[in-house]
Amino acid sequence: MGCGEFLVKYILFFANLFFALAGLALLGLGVAVQLQIATVVTIAETNVQVAPISAMVVGGIVFLIAFFGCCGAIKESNCMLVTYAVIMIVLMILKVTLASLIFVNLDAVVAEVPKILNEAFNRDQTAFHELEKYFQCCGPTGPLSYMTVTLPETCCAGTPCTVVNAYSGCDKKVQNLFETFGLTIGVLAIVVVAFELVAVVFALCLANHARNKSRRSHY
């Protein structure tokens, strides 16, 4: 094997190690988002789980394919490398689609949060207390949402709970959650795609080298 092929082989191997870690990061981030918005989904009766669930699925698949790519690079298997490249191209398209959907719809989802939380608050204040407890917030817009002097204990860190020592409104905290994790998932997906494009080129080059070596061995 020449120096060029040697470099391509090990660059591809270590690139796939990076993809495996990135896949785990995407999976972990999806799980973290899912756990944090589970309360919002339960209280607000709305479905905003597409992005975290998609991130978990894509992250898990990326991890498995990256492991497959590492094996293909070490063994210099033409079949494994070509299969790996094709699957990676499909995954790249899926991740670009995921990131595009997040960036396009994020502002609309964030803008809907005050309306959704206000409806949930008016529908069932007792259930809304679970959201306040989890996010350490008080009412949709703040303690004045209750229009009473004495507030529920979930609105404060200590007792008695009044307007003076109450947390801020839940609107901003839930909006910040969606903005932070939405952008993080979208940016991470784009970064991974950029590295995957390089890996696909290297995989095809190494596959071509393996195919040529196999042909020469038959002469």
Rank of each mutant, 00 (worst) to 15 (best):
Leu24Thr: 05
Phe121Thr: 11
Phe6Met: 08
Gln49Trp: 01
Val198Arg: 04
Gln136Ser: 08
Gly186Val: 11
Leu144Thr: 13
His209Arg: 12
Phe135Val: 09
Phe121Tyr: 14
Gly182Met: 07
Thr42Gln: 09
Val58Gly: 00
Cys79Ser: 14
Pro143Ser: 08
Leu17Ala: 15
Thr126Ile: 15
Tyr84Asn: 03
Pro152Phe: 09
Ile74Thr: 04
Leu151Ser: 01
Cys137His: 05
Val8Pro: 01
Asn165Ser: 03
Pro152Leu: 02
Val200Asn: 04
Pro114Gly: 06
His209Trp: 11
Ile102Met: 11
Phe63Pro: 00
Asn176Phe: 08
Ala73Met: 05
Thr83Asp: 04
Phe128Ala: 07
Asn118Asp: 12
Cys71Asn: 00
Thr39Glu: 09
Glu179Thr: 12
Val31Pro: 00
Ala120Phe: 11
Ile65Tyr: 06
Val200Leu: 09
His209Tyr: 15
Glu179Phe: 09
Ala25Gln: 01
Thr46Phe: 05
Glu153Trp: 01
Arg215Leu: 13
Gly169Asn: 01
Phe67Gln: 03
Cys3Asn: 07
Val58Ser: 02
Ser145Trp: 04
Met92Lys: 08
Phe103Leu: 15
Ala85Glu: 03
Lys95Arg: 13
His218Phe: 14
Ala51Asn: 06
Ala157Cys: 00
Leu24Tyr: 01
Phe103Tyr: 15
Cys137Asp: 04
Ile190Lys: 06
Asn118Ala: 06
Asp107Leu: 06
Asn208Gly: 10
Val198Thr: 12
Cys138Pro: 00
Gly139Pro: 00
Tyr134Thr: 12
Val86Phe: 06
Cys79Val: 14
Leu26Ser: 01
Val48Glu: 11
Leu64Asn: 08
Ala44Thr: 09
Phe14Met: 11
Ser54Leu: 14
Gly30Cys: 02
Phe178Ala: 12
Ser77Lys: 09
Val41Gly: 01
Ala210Asn: 05
Gly139Leu: 01
Thr159Ala: 14
Cys3Pro: 10
Arg216Lys: 14
Thr154Val: 06
Cys79Thr: 15
Val58Arg: 02
Ala15Ile: 15
Glu132Met: 10
Ala166Met: 09
Phe121Val: 12
Gly28Lys: 02
Glu196Pro: 03
Val201Arg: 05
Leu81Trp: 00
Ile65Gln: 01
Asn16Gln: 07
Ala203Val: 09
Cys170Thr: 06
Leu35Ile: 08
His129Gln: 15
Val193Leu: 10
Ala15Arg: 08
Ala85Pro: 03
Gly4Cys: 15
Val198Pro: 02
Cys71Glu: 07
Leu117Asp: 12
Glu153Cys: 00
Ala199Glu: 08
Thr162Ser: 03
Ala51Asp: 13
Pro160Val: 04
Lys213Phe: 11
Asn176Arg: 13
Ala73Phe: 09
Phe202Leu: 10
Val198Ala: 14
Thr141Trp: 00
Val200Pro: 03
Pro160Ile: 03
Ser145Phe: 03
Thr141Gln: 05
Tyr134Glu: 10
Ala38Glu: 10
Val41Phe: 01
Ser168Met: 04
Lys173Gln: 13
